[in-house]
Simulated scan of single mutants.
Amino acid sequence: MLQPVQGKTRLTKWYSSFTNKEKSRFTREVSNMVLNRPPKLCNFLEWKEYKIIFKRYASLYFVVCVDRTDNELIVLETIHHFVEILDRYFGNVCELDLIFNFHKAYYILDELIMAGELQETSKKTVLRIMAQQDAQQENPSEHKVDL
């Protein structure tokens, strides 16, 4: 989940199945816990049978909910990896980039994480794939595949 300090959710990705009502309730509960947490406290919270790991970059909170057995430091590193790729792609990412290009942020996330597991550790590879995707969107006639 990605939220600015105002609490409006800008990006969510679920790797477990929940009803829309549960998703809404979970988002609200987790958001309240993270946004109301004093900045000097650690970035790990226990919530129900999960762990909440979050990191604030400027005015954006990157929040991940994982099983209690997952390693918090690896999750923090994955968050940082995602932020670095967003920064390189958008050129110092901000909330407006995510509002107007949310589909690209989702695409980057899908290139990085599949089924809740980190799939691609190379920033260059993800950025190369994004460049190919952008080129394909700009010139769709050049990239037609004959069937």
Rank of each mutant, 00 (worst) to 15 (best):
L2T: 13
Q3R: 12
V5W: 11
K8W: 06
K8I: 10
L11K: 04
T12M: 14
K13F: 00
S16R: 14
S16C: 08
T19H: 02
N20M: 14
E22N: 12
S24V: 06
T27I: 09
R28Y: 11
V30A: 02
V30N: 05
V34N: 00
R37F: 05
R37D: 01
R37E: 08
P38I: 11
K40L: 14
C42N: 14
F44T: 12
E49N: 13
E49I: 09
Y50R: 08
K51G: 01
R56T: 00
Y57I: 01
A58V: 05
S59W: 00
F62A: 03
V63G: 01
V66Q: 01
N71K: 04
F82P: 03
D87K: 00
R88K: 14
R88N: 07
N92S: 15
C94A: 05
E95C: 01
L96K: 04
I99R: 00
F100Q: 03
F102P: 05
F102E: 11
Y107K: 15
I108T: 01
L109A: 12
L109K: 03
E111S: 09
I113K: 07
G116I: 11
L118Y: 01
T121A: 01
M130Q: 12
A135L: 13
Q137S: 11
H143R: 07
K144T: 05
D146T: 14
L147I: 04
